[in-house]
Write a protein that binds this DNA or RNA. Structure first.
Length: 459
DNA sequence: TGCACATTGAG
DNA sequence: TCAATGTGC
């Protein structure tokens, strides 16, 4: 009997770990070990954890259709898997390789007690394949992506099994069946369906429409990548096909833009692999001792979507309400926390990680270091998003703002990004009192910009 | 994957 | 007058 320890590739199609475990032919025990904190708080579960629980429930059903089932246990993965191995007399464990140092410690502990084999890797290519000529890992995205693109790529996908070995009659924790997640139904076939519909059109205009807050121009696939309901291989395969299916040069380059995002995913996984210390602080040492503000009021206003800057607040409320945020809004809100409020980016990283249903430690950290300008390859300190102009540019009619900030729903387009500029008569006519129903800006953009420049330029 | 402000040159 | 371009933060 082989244990298939499922960590982050919760799918049947194109699954290298599953394929490797099945090849042995000695029986297969699909196992997921759930964090105790999630299990004990299941009655007050966050949207983020709901996605995982829902995915596990659906995956169990999919396994049952093939004659297997999911064995779910709660607690420390190393202890639980050793316990399970004893129950079913398993000699080998097959699992997904992750880059997080805490998980790597678990692999080392488990590997001392039982034979541990890795199937799925975090990136398209092995880490050793994408390195500089001098053997050192890349620290900058563009050269990394150039080397990545130059490698020969094999996108042969692994077949879904037609049936699976049955599972012995052992205990499995039962999870509650949760209400359906509208935007992100946590099922493998839904991920495939979303991928297909993105490739059928939106990918060809991705470069521009991905930035429009009011449009659904992004692929909405991030939660599926996070938990592996979809593989990066499957996605690349589909994107390469989409590129072949057009002879329009601009459409092709739009496909490349989206493919680039998958390369960013690989890049940040590689950074976490080679430099796990990024989890504890800035990649660049010179950014180590910045004089961050410890304003609890500022941080709370940011979290609550009450900064007084509509586009920032809309993003933060979308996050809190749905567990997901538009990518452009992630850039605007993270820049605002770091540059306008001068609050340590690690507080934002934590908040995003706790709420985002696509929250992946490597990507979340990489993107925050990028936004804060603390990574090697990141935004320069003087690049400070103006939340008013960003709003005007990417949400010109305030549709995104009105969707998430109902207080502002009657504000005319002219004032939707600067509601505080309305006279009290104008405010009255659109049923909002700025400073009462919706806050005044907690910082003045120009003053905050100058403060950020002066603090950050000293590095 | 920024922005503000200055300069330039066409009309 | 204004869009296009250049430049420093």
């Amino acid at each position: 009997m082989n244990i298939w320890w499922i960590q982050r590739n919760i799918r049947l199609a194109d699954n290298k770990t599953l394929t490797a475990a099945l090849q042995e032919g000695n029986g297969l025990l699909p196992v997921f070990i759930l964090d105790r904190k999630i299990y004990e708080n299941i009655s007050t579960i966050s949207t983020k954890d709901k996605f995982l629980i829902s995915a596990l429930n659906h995956f169990d059903k999919a396994l049952q259709q093939l004659g297997s089932r999911l064995i779910l246990r709660v607690g420390n993965p190393v202890d639980e898997i050793i316990k399970l191995a004893g129950e079913v007399d398993a000699k080998k464990v097959y699992t997904d390789a992750d880059v997080h140092p805490a998980l790597i410690r678990q692999y080392n502990q488990l590997g001392e007690k039982i034979e541990l084999n890795f199937g799925e890797q975090p990136c398209i290519f092995p880490f050793s394949a994408v390195k500089q000529k001098n053997g050192k890992p890349y620290q900058v995205f563009t050269p990394f992506s150039r080397a990545w693109k130059a490698l020969p790529i094999n996108l042969q996908l692994f077949q879904s099994p037609d049936y699976l070995p049955s599972v012995p009659d052992i205990f499995s924790v039962t999870l509650p069946v949760l209400s359906h997640l509208d935007t992100f139904p946590a099922e493998e076939f839904q991920a495939a369906r979303k991928l297909k519909s993105f490739m059928d059109g939106p990918i060809y205009t991705y470069s521009d429409s991905r930035n429009m807050l009011c449009k659904d121009g992004t692929s909405f696939l991030s939660p599926y990548f996070r938990w592996g309901l979809l593989s990066k291989r499957q996605a690349l395969h589909a994107a390469f096909d989409a590129k072949l299916n057009t002879d329009d040069f601009i459409s092709m380059s739009n496909c490349d833009s989206w493919i680039n995002e998958i390369i960013w995913n690989d890049f940040f996984q590689a950074i976490m692999h080679f430099f796990p210390e990024v989890l504890d602080g800035p990649f660049r040492n010179s950014m180590q001792n910045l004089e961050w503000s410890d304003s609890a009021i500022g941080l709370q206003a940011w979290k609550d979507g009450l900064t007084g800057y509509p586009v920032v607040d809309a993003g933060m409320r979308q996050l809190r309400n749905t567990g997901w945020m538009h990518n452009r809004a992630r850039m605007i809100t993270s820049s605002f926390l770091v540059k306008h409020l001068l609050i340590n980016w690690q507080k934002g990283e934590r908040w995003f990680y706790d709420l985002l249903i696509d929250g992946d430690p490597a990507l979340n950290n990489g993107n925050w270091q990028w936004a804060a300008g603390t990574g090697t390859d990141s935004v320069p300190y003087f690049r400070i998003f103006n939340p008013i102009l960003q709003g005007k540019k990417y949400d010109p009619h305030g549709m995104y703002i009105r969707r998430w900030i109902p207080e502002l729903s009657d504000v005319p387009d002219r004032f939707i990004h600067t509601p505080w500029l309305m006279t009290s008569v104008e405010q009255k006519s659109c049923h909002v009192q700025i400073g009462n129903h919706y806050p005044l800006p907690i910082v003045d953009h120009n003053a905050a910009r100058l403060r950020a420049l002066s603090v950050l330029s000293r590095r």
